[in-house]
Amino acid sequence: TYYTVKSGDTANKIAAQYGVSVANLRSWNGISGDLIFVGQKLIVKKG
């Protein structure tokens, strides 16, 4: 599943929404920190 980042989103918020850990969200998308951008497409695997 892909999720498009919206204004006000955070890695924590997206992870919680899908029931996954922030560490997994980072791993699936090659993100090292919490910096995400509006319009960015993230791979999300439901927990």
Rank of each mutant, 00 (worst) to 15 (best):
K6W: 03
V44Y: 03
K46Y: 13
D9A: 00
D34R: 06
A16Q: 12
K6Q: 13
L35N: 14
A23H: 11
Q17S: 10
K41Y: 07
G47T: 12
T10R: 03
A16N: 10
A11T: 15
Q40L: 07
A11E: 08
A15K: 01
N12Y: 15
R26A: 12
S27A: 14
K13E: 10
I36T: 04
I43G: 01
Y2Q: 07
K13S: 15
G19R: 07
W28A: 03
S27E: 15
Y3G: 01
V5W: 05
L42V: 06
W28E: 03
G19I: 04
G30H: 11
V38G: 03
T1G: 10
Y2C: 14
D9E: 03
G33L: 14
S7I: 15
W28I: 03
I43Q: 08
V20W: 03
D34I: 08
S7P: 15
V44H: 01
S21V: 05
I31M: 13
S32W: 10
G47C: 09
Y2S: 06
I31P: 03
N24C: 15
K46C: 12
G47I: 14
S32E: 15
G8P: 02
A15P: 00
G33C: 09
N29W: 04
I36F: 09
N29M: 03
W28V: 03
L25K: 00
N12H: 14
I14C: 03
T4W: 10
A23W: 08
V20F: 04
T1K: 10
I36M: 08
V20C: 11
Y18E: 05
N29P: 01
K41A: 08
S32F: 11
A23E: 15
S32G: 08
G19S: 08
Q17E: 12
G47D: 13
V20L: 10
N29E: 01
K45L: 11
T4Q: 07
V20H: 02
I43S: 04
A15G: 03
S27I: 13
N29C: 03
S27N: 12
K45D: 10
G39Y: 06
D9W: 02
G33R: 06
L42E: 00
K46E: 11
I43Y: 09
K41L: 14
G8I: 02
R26L: 15
S21N: 07
G8D: 06
T10N: 07
Y3V: 07
D9Y: 00
Y18D: 00
G8Y: 05
S7N: 12
D34W: 07
G47A: 13
I31L: 15
K41D: 06
S21L: 07
T10E: 05
V22A: 07
I43K: 07
A15E: 02
S27W: 10
N24Q: 15
S27V: 12
K46I: 14
S7G: 09
V38R: 05
V20T: 08
T1L: 13
